[in-house]
């Protein structure tokens, strides 16, 4: 008997075409075009002009500052994420749900508010303002403030990825190691870490990309002092506001390429290690 009709759970062809067209147009319009504009504008005066813009003194120091800030924030957040996931996934204790909600907090807080709270603590009119002034310690408008703001907005990333992962994996293996006499760190290094390595890698990548790209929170605490407290996203803003479009988009292009790299690595990790990821999500 010839195929006379489609499977009952298949959509009619007309619907498929319609929805497909809508989906692709929407993504193309809202997502792809902005991305394309970044590169188009960066190269508007040719590759040479773009490269010159990035190697400008201020741009270079913004790149350096971003790297330093991320270089401090990401490892600290990774340690935090591992510690939090260990406590939450491998133990039961009262208030666990509250703790998890607290960890999720930066995700629901506006980045500007994230910067604001540090101004309220360390700013000239803040809690420690006068004290810091007396001791000539600069938190705001200096690297420490930028690092703090970056830490705040990115610390959930590692924790959020590891907590469900380590919860899913259960405690059996770690308990076995403990009965065999392994110390906490040994257990972690030899038993837990191999099981979580792909999730951890992905989380660190995401955390890093977000740290380098953070704008709102850093913008509030940095003071935007040229050559000193200007990160890459702030440099993008400064150049754009000074009508240096090629410059702004060139630095932006670096950040965009980093984003694309992160996405590509994520896709690669998911594709190649789907089996391992699935296995590591054992029940």
């Amino acid at each position: 008997m010839a195929r006379k009709f489609r499977n009952p759970t298949d959509d009619p062809l007309a619907l498929k075409l319609l929805l497909g067209a809508i989906a692709i147009s929407f993504v193309g319009l809202f997502l792809v075009m902005p991305l394309a504009v970044v590169f188009k504008e960066a190269l508007a005066k040719g590759l040479g002009a773009a490269l010159t813009a990035i190697s400008d003194q201020d741009s270079l120091s913004s790149i350096r500052l971003s790297l330093i800030a991320a270089g401090i924030a990401v490892p600290l957040n990774t340690v935090f994420g591992i510690a939090a996931a260990w406590a939450i996934a491998k133990f039961d204790f009262p208030g666990k749900t509250f703790l998890v909600t607290l960890i999720d907090l930066p995700f629901s807080v506006s980045p500007v508010v994230a910067g604001l709270i540090y101004v309220l603590v360390f700013g000239a009119q803040g809690w420690f303002g006068p004290y810091l002034l007396d001791h000539d310690v600069h938190i705001l408008f200096a690297l420490p403030g930028i690092v703090l703001a970056t830490i705040f907005v990115t610390f959930p990333f590692v924790a959020r990825e590891l907590i469900p992962l380590m919860t899913d994996q259960g405690r059996d293996e770690e308990e076995a190691a403990a009965t065999l006499g392994a110390s906490g760190f040994q257990t972690f290094r030899r038993v837990t870490l191999p099981n979580i390595k792909w999730g951890l890698l992905y989380a660190v990548l995401l955390c890093n990309a977000r740290a380098l790209g953070e704008f709102g929170a850093v913008s509030v605490v940095s003071g935007k002092i040229r050559g000193e407290t200007v990160t890459m996203p702030l440099q993008v803003q400064l150049m754009y506001e000074n009508y240096d479009y090629v410059g702004a988009f060139s630095v932006a292009a670096i950040l965009a390429m980093l984003a694309l790299l992160t996405l590509a690595l994520k896709t690669l990790l998911e594709w190649r290690y789907a089996d391992e990821l699935a296995a590591s999500h054992r029940r």
Partner: peptide
């Protein structure tokens, strides 16, 4: 995931 991964300032000027 692009809007999730792309820095907001980059998205802004674009």
């Amino acid at each position: 995931d692009l809007p999730f991964a792309l820095p907001t300032a980059v998205a802004g000027i674009a």
